[in-house]
């Protein structure tokens, strides 16, 4: 990534430059290739249906119109209702925010206990939690449905929050455990001698230390929960569906002409929050991930 900077003969220097150019060209091509779908989505969402039918897929819009965005947000039909994504978007917000916060907090507490308050069987419990990370979604669908039914939470947003919290704890515990095992045990000892108890030490000493790993966990959990489709479609009913399910319904329930521009706008709207979280906290994400894993 940095130039090695050793002295080179003229001939080798030219070869060097050519190699560099080739490299950038190749990387540029890859980037273009990767950005192509996004480009098509954005341009298509800004075109009118008429223009989509007559123009080329990769052309810039001749007349920029936000009509499709308005329809996607508040007018598109998901089956029999035609309220757009808006109600489902808010469903996702009130589902994702508590689910992220609760699973992060529980993960932090779990990681704190497992790494700093070692008890008999702590490692076994941690292994089981790790195992939980690798259980495929499909396996838990039926038992979870039964459980939600028994708890009276079937088809509700609190039910979905519950599912996401349970499913997320394995990951959040892993993140926080790996971060906290790098903290020397003498810190807890010092605080104990100072008179602080379990929660006081967590709150005053460990949480303030945890900003990088909190950011990592929040991004991870938010992305997982916001983008989840399977749990959303399995454990919700009309009115409590998250945005991913609504998006699917919009795209699949068109009668007559397929409104590509509305579909594209809806897809971008559904993806914006995760994009936003990455842009705001992405820097921390990289740093936090490496901080947790290098010494862990």
């Amino acid at each position: 990534m940095t130039d090695l900077g050793f002295p080179q003969s003229q001939g080798r220097n030219w070869g060097h430059v050519a190699l560099r150019c080739l490299l950038f060209l190749l990387l540029g091509l890859f980037a273009l290739f990767y950005l192509m779908p996004l480009f098509v989505m954005v341009t298509t969402s800004l075109k009118s249906l008429e223009e989509i039918r007559t123009g080329s897929l990769v052309a810039f819009p001749r007349d920029v119109t936000f009509e499709a965005w308005r329809t996607a947000w508040s007018g598109a039909c998901t089956g029999i209702q035609c309220e757009g994504l808006r109600p489902y978007f808010w469903n996702s917000v009130i589902l994702a925010i508590p689910a992220v916060l609760i699973s992060t907090l529980i993960g932090a507490l779990n990681g704190y206990v497992i790494s700093q308050w070692k008890f008999r069987g702590a490692n076994l419990i941690f292994s089981l939690m790790l195992f939980g990370c690798f259980i495929p979604f499909q396996v838990v669908l039926l038992p979870m449905a039964r459980m939600l039914g028994l708890m009276g939470l079937a088809g509700t947003i609190p039910g979905l929050i519950f599912v996401h919290v349970i499913y997320g704890i394995g990951f959040t515990t892993l993140f926080f455990r790996n971060y906290y095992v790098t903290i020397p045990a003498e810190l807890v000892k010092a605080a104990k001698v100072d008179g602080a108890g379990f929660f006081r030490i967590f709150w005053s000493i460990f949480l303030p230390l945890s900003l990088p790993i909190i950011v990592v966990t929040v991004i991870w959990q938010f992305t997982q929960i916001w983008n989840d489709f399977l749990f959303g479609v399995s454990f919700s009913q009309a009115g409590t569906q998250p945005v991913t399910v609504a998006l699917n319904n919009i795209v699949n329930s068109t009668t007559g002409v397929k409104e590509y521009n509305v579909d594209m706008a809806a897809a971008i709207i559904a993806a914006l929050p995760t994009l936003f979280v990455y842009v705001v906290a992405g820097n921390y994400f990289i740093r936090g991930l490496t901080a947790g894993s290098v010494k862990g």
């Binding site: 003498e186 810190l187 000892k189 010092a190 605080a191 001698v193 000493i205």
Partner: peptide
Amino acid sequence: PKDRDIAMVFQSYALY
């Protein structure tokens, strides 16, 4: 520990 009326200095200092 908190009720033993002791104070301790650790090898790694263990500053918060």
